[in-house]
Nucleic acid binder design. Structure first.
Lengths: 353, 353
DNA sequence: CTGAAAGCGCTTACAG
DNA sequence: CTGAAAGCGCTTACAG
């Protein structure tokens, strides 16, 4: 009693009107709790007159169902929330994935708990743990870590996992990503078709498996034209616009500069553009980037890229996740989404012999 | 019993290992439920030996606390989730807001439920309702609707509301946004200082209050130089790159074309760039945009903009929200964050007299 | 078609 | 320092 009063007083002091519960609605409507529950959940077989009374009471009290409470007791225990953990939500590729997944989830009445991992495995573990405490129904994950065995517990608890952009390691799970190797090969072969033989490689962290794949594609394309890899023009572990710009500038000033560049990621492409521009060589040295970016068409020359299909990747991933949630327990799927070459000018500058 | 067995069988059939609860941990450790709760919540005054036993049991069973269940019973009822509803998470301004809020929230152990409103008031209502069902602890909202009275219930239920980018209408709540009017005035005055008198206005939906503010800033700047508004070069209700490009192209071809453009939003700026480029007039007609965008510096000419400080807006908004959650109930705050003129070339093309 | 009792996983408010 | 009982808001599994 005393405690109850105190709560009341605190609430009043703060001007807080406590939320109505099903119990309150039941009291006002003069029916049982269970009947209110039936009406709120739109179960059939409730007397229409009672439905009316309950609806009126709920509306008067501005009753709002509590998902968490119902999930706790419901047999499926679903929270109607999924976790979406991506590299960095302010990066355009992540953003389009988020947007697309959000749309599919919304159509199912599911909300999205987002998180940015920033290539930090510790942060990934932490965010996953938080999402688990929230009992999300599933995960869509572009992992930062390189060992995902710790997620096996979640799979065993019946929480579906779909990897996007990067494959799972140390456990088997569904995944959806671009065909990086083939895309990179297409980019470099395109440069080769304009006579280039000395093509520099700018790539992200070697620990990222897609960066390895893209490098493999680069090697494949060189193999095709009988050129062997020259490590003096292979630059890996680049993460930022500035890093790519610096390396590009240095290569351009070297004794035997490349006649073309392949950049394995959009920030690196932008860095290369910046350095080529600074050196006044944007119309003399060719460039093809992996992953499209806004305004690539408005630069001079327009930047030729191998574009990823983010919408397709995200749609496939989300639909796969929901199929799993709907009970489809077939073996793991690995979906590769093809990339597309977009010709804009920078990749069609011929090699000067 | 029969039901229990059936559940068991289903779980086994699906290979699902049910999650351990505090009860399970208590049983294994040979202590009471309450003692487990104390250990998990790191309450002091538990015998260190018991702490050890409980920790060991929790670890063996891979116990994961259930936020939802504890929130249900806890007196504060906090879900450790906040809702962040923005225009479109794939738009760079929204994305930087998301990223920044996420960071502040993470430091508090709070996760973010995101949503894109897409200028659709109905979608706003729907998403807010969903977030309420999830019992989020607070809202950060860039509203699509133009009447927010429906949110009064939430305020009364003690859920803090912080508006970003756009002010609340029909209720009083905290808000944080750019000083749009002053920023727009700065942009247009800058054009005027290069001799422009015939400056076109490209603006977003008139129903958006910041679009109105930006138009007012445009009018203010013209007033300062004694020029009256010419409606034939004022174009409102533009939403997309293409719409802005079309209008710009038409104005350039008109009998008395403007010598400069002010674009009230980044997509519109990009549209204007595209049209100027197509007409070959990018070095003859001046342009200043409101809101910065990636690569604006790499275009030719570089695009002069009045930049919003998204990080500052988001930081202020998130900190304000958490201050409210911490019990600060002082009167509503309206914070205006100044914009910055970034000179890059397109805005410094003089008027040809 | 309706409702009383039990319980989801946890914390509160006690008592010892 | 520890624990048994009650209850958060809701659904389940019954009985009528």
């Amino acid at each position: 009693m005393a405690a109850g009063e105190q709560t009341m007083n605190e609430a009043v002091a703060k001007g807080i009107a406590p939320r109505a519960t099903m119990k309150d609605v039941a009291a006002l409507a003069g029916v049982s709790l269970k009947t209110v529950s039936r009406v709120i959940n739109e179960e059939p077989s409730v007397n229409p007159e009672m439905v009316e009374r309950v609806r009126a009471a709920a509306s008067t009290l501005r009753y709002k169902p509590n998902f968490g409470a119902s999930a706790l007791r419901r047999r499926d225990g679903r929270s109607s929330q999924i976790a979406l953990l991506l590299e960095d939500l302010s990066n355009p590729f992540s953003a389009i994935i988020y947007r697309t997944v959000e749309e599919v989830a919304l159509s199912r009445g599911v909300t999205v708990l987002g998180g940015s991992l920033e290539e930090d495995p510790a942060r990934e573990r932490e965010l996953v743990a938080t999402m688990v405490r929230h009992r999300v129904d599933g995960f869509i994950l572009a992992p930062a870590s390189h060992d995902h065995a710790y997620l096996i517990e979640e799979q065993q608890a019946g929480v579906p996992l779909v990897f996007v952009d990067r494959p799972p390691k140390g456990l088997s799970a569904d995944s959806v990503m671009s065909d990086s190797r083939e895309g990179a090969k297409m980019a470099v072969s395109h440069l080769a078709s304009f006579g280039h033989r000395r093509i520099a490689y700018l790539g992200d962290l070697e620990t990222i498996s897609t960066a390895q794949d893209r490098f493999q594609g680069y090697v494949d394309a060189l193999d095709d034209i009988g050129v062997s890899v020259d490590n003096s023009i292979v630059c890996k572990d680049l993460r930022t616009i500035d890093a790519a710009a610096e390396v590009t500038a240095a290569l351009l000033k070297s004794e035997n500069p490349p006649t073309a560049f392949f950049a394995g990621q959009n920030l690196l492409t932008i860095g290369a553009v910046r350095a080529l521009r600074a050196a006044g060589k944007q119309n003399h040295v060719a460039l093809v980037g992996f992953d499209d970016f806004l305004l690539a068409d408005l630069l001079e020359p327009g930047v030729t890229v191998v574009a990823q299909n983010g919408v397709e990747i995200a749609t496939q991933a989300a639909e796969l996740l929901f199929r799993r949630l709907d009970g489809d327990l077939e073996g793991e799927m690995t979906l590769e989404v093809p990339t597309t070459l977009i010709v804009r000018g920078s990749g069609e500058i011929p090699a000067n012999r």
